[in-house]
Simulated assay, not measured.
Amino acid sequence: MRNKTNINKSVFSLFKQMLTLQLTFFIIFFAINFYVDYEGLENKSPVSYILTTDVITLSIFLLISLFIILFIFIRWHFNTVEISDGFLQYRKGLFLKKFKIDFKDIQSVSFEEDILGDFFEFGTICVKTAPNGKNVKISTINSAAYYASILRRYIKGNRTYSPKSKEEIYKLISRAEERGVEFKSSLRWDIKLNKVNKEIEKTIMKVVCGFMNAEAGILLVGIGDNGEIIGLENDYKTLRKYGKDYFEVHFYHLVSQMIGKEYMHLIDVAFYSLEERDICSVQVFPSEDPVYLRSDNQEIFYVRAGNTTQPLSIREAGKYIKSHWKG
């Protein structure tokens, strides 16, 4: 039995469901009360000398309200997502029918957060499955971005390929940058300016985009141009929470925003400790269709040229696309 991860729904989901059902019940109840002749019922009732119609009505209202609250709480409590043994299991529907998705059928995992979700740290995990490309959305999940990255990690462990070992990482560094390998000292921290620099993030996404439009490649973050092991500590300090989990979350967020959620499955992120410093290995796989980088309201096509990443003009891109993706 492998490690198991249980993901619970956000408390916001509980309050939202309670408010929605209670409000619906309130409207229906008082609409019915509007048409009921309580005076006539009270005259006919054998218990009218003990309980007035108002007391009976209020008691019914409170009992049904209590039942709704209890039902929603039980439903929310058992509405969990489970990741284990090569499957993603979740419950859906009024009576929480269980669904199971094999990791082998998952093409990509992403997440969505609105303004409210970003503030209260909940969102929707989006799972795209094969072969029909169906999207499964699991809403109001606590720390959706974090658990989306955890799910990707489980999926990677069940794929036929495996990340590079520490020894192989050292070999890549010793060979220095070559075709299909790129070193970057950080994801977003500018060592020279001593602050976060969005242009560095953009540069890294250019490399990822270029690899996808070529024959794949490996990006090592935390390694200087000369092979010096710098580490990710400066990047960690700039994130919402310190550590490699949120580094991975932010990396996938950049891919989602600047390249597209549909290409997340082409990326395999792994971390290694070299000389007591974390470095990140990003294995990028080739895309089956052209990939564009979205930046400054533009879409730019990048390719690898030797050990560099270069943009192509519209004419050049058209020619490259025609030759690279024949048919």
Rank of each mutant, 00 (worst) to 15 (best):
Y242L: 15
V249H: 13
H253S: 12
Y246C: 02
D225H: 12
G243R: 12
L232R: 06
I223W: 01
R240Y: 11
Y242I: 12
K237L: 09
I229W: 03
D245Y: 10
F247D: 12
H253P: 00
Y236H: 14
R240H: 12
I229D: 01
I223N: 00
D225G: 13
G224P: 00
D245W: 13
E233H: 05
D225W: 08
Y246M: 12
V255F: 04
G231L: 04
Y246W: 14
D245E: 15
K244I: 10
H250W: 07
I230V: 15
F247K: 05
G227A: 02
N234R: 13
H250E: 14
Y252C: 05
N234S: 14
G231R: 05
K244C: 08
R240F: 11
I223R: 00
Y242T: 14
K241Y: 15
G227K: 02
F247N: 11
L254C: 12
E228T: 15
F247E: 12
I230G: 01
V249P: 09
G243F: 08
K241C: 11
N226P: 01
G231V: 08
G243H: 07
G224F: 00
G231N: 02
E233N: 10
D225A: 05
I223E: 02
Y236P: 04
Y236K: 11
Y252A: 00
E228K: 06
L239F: 10
F247V: 03
E233W: 02
F247A: 09
G224K: 05
K237P: 08
V255E: 06
G227S: 02
F247Y: 14
H250T: 14
L254F: 03
E248C: 04
Y242K: 12
H250M: 14
G227P: 03
Y242V: 13
G243C: 09
G231T: 06
T238D: 01
Y242W: 14
F247L: 14
K244P: 02
Y242C: 07
K237D: 12
E248I: 11
G224C: 01
I223L: 01
L254V: 00
Y246G: 03
Y242D: 14
D235S: 10
I230Q: 04
N234E: 13
I230W: 01
L254W: 01
Y236V: 01
I223A: 04
G224L: 04
L254T: 00
T238V: 10
V255M: 12
N226R: 10
H253G: 11
I229F: 00
I230P: 01
F247H: 15
G231C: 06
E233F: 03
Y242P: 04
Y246F: 15
L254I: 01
N234G: 00
L254P: 05
K237R: 14
I229P: 00
Y252N: 13
L239R: 08
G227D: 09
L254E: 07
F251Q: 06
F251T: 06
